[in-house]
Simulated scan of single mutants.
Amino acid sequence: MKFDVIQGDIATQEADALVNAAGTSLRMGSGVAGALRRRAGSELNEEAIAKGPVDLGEVAVTDAYDLEADHVIHAAAMPHYGDGKATETSIREATRNSLERADELECRSLVIPALGCGVAGFSLERGAEIIGETIGEYEPSTLEEVRFIAYSDDEYETVRAAVDDLE
């Protein structure tokens, strides 16, 4: 499976599936979720909410609506209760479950952001390492390409350095 770190806006990416950095309620607020919601239309948020809540680390799948993808995989790396903070375990499980669900959907390509590293307060450097490790350990059945996307220049440099350290 090909694995790359790229820079850009996840809402403009073309892939079989895009991963949303979700909370357990699946309500799409700011950050990655907000970008996807604005581009896809309000139906994306409505369908996501109807499929929630989910347990921490779990995923739900919706249509991608006006995005250049077939599916959005909503990965709940942060709780919408308690302190709202992501953990190593929640990031690892949300990443693994996203990869597994993409395979179940027979996706060939997937774009994943830094789950749990925005409003959920987890260290971007450590979060990127966890996501990179989980992708590296995964044995795909249909997935051929995974792109780990970073939005800003600084985020891209941090993710790239964290993932490069794994090799």
Results as ranks from 00 to 15, higher is better:
16 D>W: 04
73 I>E: 04
1 M>C: 11
147 R>N: 13
69 A>L: 06
74 H>L: 04
77 A>F: 09
22 A>C: 08
59 V>M: 12
25 S>F: 13
151 Y>H: 02
62 T>P: 09
125 E>L: 12
18 L>A: 09
88 E>A: 15
94 A>D: 07
121 G>P: 06
110 L>K: 03
101 R>I: 02
125 E>Q: 15
124 L>Y: 11
74 H>Q: 04
97 N>C: 08
57 G>K: 15
96 R>Q: 10
135 I>Q: 03
140 P>E: 08
85 K>M: 01
104 E>V: 06
31 G>D: 05
86 A>I: 04
143 L>T: 10
83 D>L: 07
93 E>Y: 08
9 D>M: 02
152 S>H: 11
68 E>A: 02
132 G>R: 13
136 G>R: 03
43 E>G: 11
97 N>K: 07
106 E>V: 03
75 A>I: 06
136 G>D: 04
165 D>H: 10
56 L>F: 12
2 K>H: 02
103 D>C: 13
104 E>S: 13
165 D>L: 15
157 E>W: 11
107 C>H: 05
157 E>T: 08
133 E>D: 03
38 R>N: 07
16 D>N: 07
126 R>S: 13
121 G>E: 06
4 D>P: 03
108 R>D: 12
80 H>W: 12
150 A>T: 00
7 Q>N: 07
131 I>V: 14
52 G>V: 14
21 A>W: 11
